[in-house]
């Protein structure tokens, strides 16, 4: 048994002739706060699509919590404990916020044995924690951008994940809103959930992460503590496009 919660081993992904990911290997420890950075189009979302099962990788393997999940459909990976938010929010528009989360708890948690009221209570507790409780009965089609991003995280949490992957949950948000979302992620991590955070906003990633990995053009540029990564010449080059 390895100590890693998630082991990504030489994962590759091609779209037609274009290589979006090339031999990506990384281990995530239980309880870790892991930051994933890289310029636009570097393959961050593609990597988490491969991990969560939205895409099937072309090569390599993904082991989660001791099980090989490389070929599992996305819904089974969710049930094993991998939950994610989407970079562009994907609410169930005809449902209220509460109903959105109920889908995740009813389908994402296998045989939870909760009554309807208990499930609602659990979901309300999540909304409370994330600061959306007052919107529970509002149709998700009517939420603001910050609220939608919070709901993405809340819905992921409703599936009781071991690993939460947040894909640019702060993109397009302003100062105070960024701190709000950051606080939420820190709080969840404090409860023992492993978090992979993809983010463009450097200060946020650096404040949040214990370890950071930088991708560029589908390859790992470097990996280390936030300070090490910030100081790395190759990272600066990747971002400056030099």
């Amino acid at each position: 048994m390895s100590a890693a919660l998630l082991r990504v081993d030489k994962v590759s992904k091609r779209f037609g002739g274009f290589t979006a990911l090339q031999d990506i290997s990384v281990d995530i420890r239980p309880g870790e706060r892991f930051g994933l950075i890289g310029p636009n189009g570097s393959g961050k979302t593609t990597l988490i699509n491969c991990i969560s099962g939205a895409l099937t990788s072309d090569g390599g393997s993904i082991v989660f919590d001791g099980h090989d999940v490389t070929r599992l459909p996305a819904y089974k990976r969710t049930r094993r404990g991998i939950a994610r938010s989407f970079q562009v929010p994907r609410p169930f528009r005809t449902m209220t916020v509460l109903e959105n989360l109920l889908v995740a708890i009813d389908f994402g948690v296998e045989s939870h044995g909760l009554s309807g009221d208990q499930a609602t209570a659990e979901v309300m507790a999540i909304l409370e924690k994330i600061g959306l409780a007052d919107k529970a009965r509002v149709s998700s089609g009517q939420l603001s951008q910050v609220e939608l991003r919070k709901m993405e995280l809340a819905r992921a949490m409703a599936a009781r994940p071991k690993l939460l992957i947040s894909d640019e949950a702060m993109a397009g948000l302003a100062g105070a809103e960024i701190d709000e979302v950051l606080d939420v992620l820190l709080k969840l991590n404090g409860e023992g959930i492993t978090v992979i955070m993809i983010e463009h906003i450097m200060q946020a990633v650096m404040r949040f992460s214990e370890r950071v990995m930088c991708l560029d053009a589908g390859r790992i540029v470097c990996e280390g503590t936030p300070a090490q990564v910030m100081d790395d010449k190759r990272v600066q080059e990747a971002y400056l496009g030099a």
């Binding site: 099962g53 969710t78 989407f86 994907r90 005809t94 449902m95 995740a104």
Partner: peptide
């Protein structure tokens, strides 16, 4: 439960799958 799952499929199939719905 089937009905709620189908509704999630209709609203957003990718999101449904990622919520654990066996679409």
């Amino acid at each position: 439960k089937l009905g709620r799952g189908l509704r999630a499929v209709r609203d957003d199939e990718v999101a449904a799958e990622s919520c654990g719905v066996p679409t």
